[in-house]
Design a protein around this nucleic acid. Structure first.
Length: 457
DNA sequence: GCATGATCATGC
DNA sequence: GCATGATCATGC
């Protein structure tokens, strides 16, 4: 193997093109050994067998002369025919003790990501790794319209390190560039410069939601509407820019907004339509380039005249046989809160009419996620696993359960969420009291009182 | 008044 | 058919 091989930019891409349509089994030189190889091997096979250099995690770029980093990454086809990235694209480990000294263009992150030769393979469940096929490649550098957001993300992460809060950095804090936890236990704890608290090791990454849009754009050929097409001209961060655009509408009633924006409907999703109009979006706000890439989920919140928020906020139902077989960090609940930023549109009741009062961006603080929310999840798992779901059946047929209720935890609870009580998922353990083998679909809800606290912060 | 179980309505 | 957001019903 020639470890001194150097390539030009063109050669790197030319070689990437030469493996399109091939499986990993076809391109590796010792196929007999790798019917089943580990996940980290995908990149090594490209590095060693295709480009002919040794595995490399040094500070230099993979192709130093060309200034290019090689990235091999999976995508998948969803049941509904759409494409998604299978995972986030990890760029480089964050060095808490050093990275805060550098601005974006001066950073190790930029060095490792300013130009990346991305090679995509199609992940298919149940297939052997050697049978997975490489299908697309892209010589990628940050698009001009994404760069201001990525730089702002970098600064957000660095700011948290400077504030001595490295242990609180969540992927949902930022939009496209995330800081994801690397390592599962206390052996992955690292020192940080401005606090005595140790923080979990983290890496800079392009978020899964960002990679999904890249896949849909380059592999799927999709064109997606942007809220701010020219971000270079924008002086404010994306969030502040949105708030600025919406501010003129603060304090107006729903009826005034309908009139002003020429929305003539009494449909249930009228608030969604109004928001789109206020932002000058033709389609749905949730389906714009920025919201999809950043995994921002818009939610409407209504506050009653007396200040109460009547409804708690629901999340997707969980499958009983799935939750009992997962660890906390693998769970859907953890991943929703770890990666999702919410945009709350708040409507307040005044004199019997709803007034658009403001929007607020929010993500779940890690300190709550990994304590209270985790406790509720653990208890739920235990209830399902032990078969102790039903506590009592009332004469009217209503079933009182042992799932963690609203009064047990300040932040979230578990409650039914199906078409009706007979909309069931199978149980891994028969329910002891009733002998039921399946049970009403349930989901986690954010407590209405906690939502009130969030929007008042 | 509020927690909790249940259900409706809409859109994909 | 089902997920999701919205809402109802009951009883303490």
């Amino acid at each position: 193997m020639d470890t001194n091989k150097t390539y030009t930019k063109e050669e790197v891409t030319e070689i990437a093109k030469s493996v399109l349509g091939k499986t990993f089994g076809e391109i590796n030189s010792y196929q007999s050994k790798i019917d089943e190889f580990s996940k980290g091997q995908f990149g090594h096979i490209l590095e060693e067998d295709v480009y002919g250099y040794g595995a490399n995690s040094s500070k230099d770029a993979d192709f130093k002369e060309a200034g290019i980093e090689l990235k091999v990454t999976p995508y998948k086809k969803n049941k509904n025919g759409t494409l998604s990235a299978k995972e986030r694209l990890v760029i480089t480990i964050i060095n808490y003790l050093e990275d805060y000294k550098h601005n974006f263009y001066d950073s190790h992150l930029y060095e490792k990501s300013k130009m990346m030769q991305i090679i995509w393979y199609l992940y298919e469940e149940g297939k052997k790794h050697c049978d997975l096929k490489i299908t697309h490649e892209l010589l990628y550098s940050y698009p001009e319209e994404d760069l201001p957001i990525i730089i702002n993300d970098y600064e957000t992460i660095i700011d948290k390190i400077k504030k001595g809060k490295a242990e609180e950095i969540s992927e949902a804090d930022t939009m496209y560039l995330g800081a994801c936890c690397k390592g599962a236990n206390s052996s992955s704890l690292r020192k940080q410069p401005f606090s005595d608290k140790k923080a979990m090791q983290r890496a800079f990454c392009l978020k899964t939601s960002y990679m999904t849009q890249l896949v849909r754009e380059y592999i799927g050929g999709e064109k997606i509407e942007k809220i701010i097409p020219d971000k270079k001209a924008a002086k404010l961060s994306f969030e502040d820019e949105l708030i600025n655009r919406l501010k003129p509408y603060y304090g107006k009633t729903v009826n005034e907004l309908k009139e002003l924006l020429d929305v003539n409907t009494d449909a249930k999703n009228v608030n969604e339509l109004l928001l789109a109009k206020m932002l000058g979006v033709k389609g749905k706000v949730a389906q714009t380039d920025e919201f999809l890439k950043a995994n921002i989920v818009p939610k409407t919140i209504r506050v009653e005249e007396n200040g109460r928020i009547i409804e708690s906020m629901s999340f997707p139902t969980f499958k009983f046989d799935k939750i009992v077989n997962e660890t906390w960090n693998e769970s859907d609940l953890y991943n929703i809160f770890y990666t999702t930023k919410f945009m709350f549109s708040i409507f307040e009741e005044k004199n019997g009419e709803y007034v658009f009062s403001k929007i607020k961006f929010w993500c779940m603080p890690l300190s709550i996620l990994n304590n209270d929310i985790k406790d509720v999840w653990n208890k739920t798992k235990k209830v399902v696993l032990s078969g102790n779901i039903v506590k009592e059946v009332l004469p009217n047929g209503k079933r009182i359960t042992n799932f963690p209720g609203m009064s047990e935890n300040k932040y979230c609870h578990v409650r039914p969420h199906g078409q009706n009580a007979n909309d069931n998922y199978p149980l891994p353990t028969e329910d002891r009291l009733t002998g039921l083998k399946e049970y009403t679909k349930q989901c986690f809800w954010l407590n209405n009182k906690y939502i009130k606290e969030i929007i008042e912060q």
